[in-house]
Each structure stands twice: as structure tokens, then as C-alpha cells.
Deep mutational scan, measured.
Amino acid sequence: MDETGKELVLALYDYQEKSPREVTMKKGDILTLLNSTNKDWWKVEVKITVNGKTYERQGAVPAAYVKKL
């Protein structure tokens, strides 16, 4: 869990989004888990830093590609 009490997951593999509802992640990324009720796809929040600014993006990733921490 992070400092706000939200559950975290670890990306076990790289994943490139294939639709606007998904998010890209790299192996080793730590993501915030938002919903894991679907056994195949979990909704997560990814933090992306671009030019020193951090953005948050929500989307789905394959459940088999992440592990709860």
C-alpha cells in the first residue's frame, strides 16, 4: 500500500497499450491498483513524468502482467 492506503501492484512485464482504455507500463513499474474485480484486466493508475511534470493516467492492464505488493 502507498501512503494514502491504496493498494500497489508491480509490473512483471512490459505492456504497450492497444486502445485508449489501456495504459502502457514497463517491467518494474509500481502502479496504483484502482479495481481488480475483473479477473483478466485490472484498472490501474500510472504516474508519467514528462519534462519534469508528473501526470496521472488511469487505464486497464492485463492482470497476469502485474502482481499485488
Rank of each mutant, 00 (worst) to 15 (best):
M1F: 13
M1N: 13
D2Q: 13
D2E: 13
D2P: 13
D2G: 14
D2L: 14
E3H: 14
E3V: 14
T4M: 13
T4Y: 12
T4D: 12
G5C: 15
G5D: 11
G5E: 13
K6M: 11
E7W: 12
L8H: 09
V9I: 07
L10W: 05
L10E: 11
L10P: 00
A11D: 01
A11G: 03
A11M: 04
L12E: 03
L12F: 02
Y13P: 01
Y13L: 10
Y13G: 04
D14K: 02
Y15A: 02
Q16T: 14
E17A: 15
E17C: 12
K18A: 10
K18P: 04
S19N: 12
S19P: 03
S19D: 10
P20S: 11
V23R: 02
V23C: 04
V23N: 02
V23W: 03
V23Y: 02
V23E: 00
T24G: 08
T24V: 03
T24L: 02
T24Y: 03
M25T: 02
M25K: 01
K26D: 02
K26H: 10
K26I: 06
K26S: 07
K27V: 06
K27D: 01
K27L: 04
K27R: 11
G28N: 05
D29P: 02
D29Q: 11
D29S: 06
I30E: 02
I30L: 07
I30P: 00
I30G: 00
I30D: 01
L31S: 01
L31Y: 08
L31A: 06
T32F: 08
T32L: 14
T32H: 09
L33S: 00
L33A: 01
L33P: 00
L33M: 02
L33I: 03
L34S: 02
L34P: 00
N35T: 06
S36C: 13
S36F: 06
S36G: 10
S36N: 07
S36L: 04
T37K: 10
T37R: 08
T37G: 09
N38Y: 06
K39V: 10
K39A: 13
K39E: 11
K39W: 05
W41Q: 01
W42L: 05
K43N: 10
K43G: 07
V44G: 00
V44M: 00
V44L: 01
E45F: 05
E45L: 14
E45C: 14
E45Q: 12
V46A: 08
K47T: 14
K47F: 08
I48K: 08
I48T: 09
T49C: 15
T49D: 09
T49I: 13
T49N: 09
V50A: 09
V50Y: 08
N51G: 11
N51Y: 06
G52Y: 03
G52H: 05
G52S: 05
G52D: 07
K53I: 14
K53L: 13
T54Y: 07
T54Q: 11
T54N: 08
Y55E: 10
Y55W: 09
Y55G: 05
E56W: 15
E56T: 15
R57I: 09
R57W: 07
Q58Y: 07
Q58D: 04
G59T: 01
G59L: 08
A60D: 15
A60L: 15
A60T: 14
A60I: 15
V61H: 01
V61T: 01
P62Q: 03
A63R: 08
A63L: 01
A63T: 04
A64H: 12
A64P: 06
Y65A: 13
Y65N: 06
V66G: 01
V66H: 02
K67H: 09
K67R: 12
K68T: 06
L69M: 09
L69Y: 07
L69Q: 03
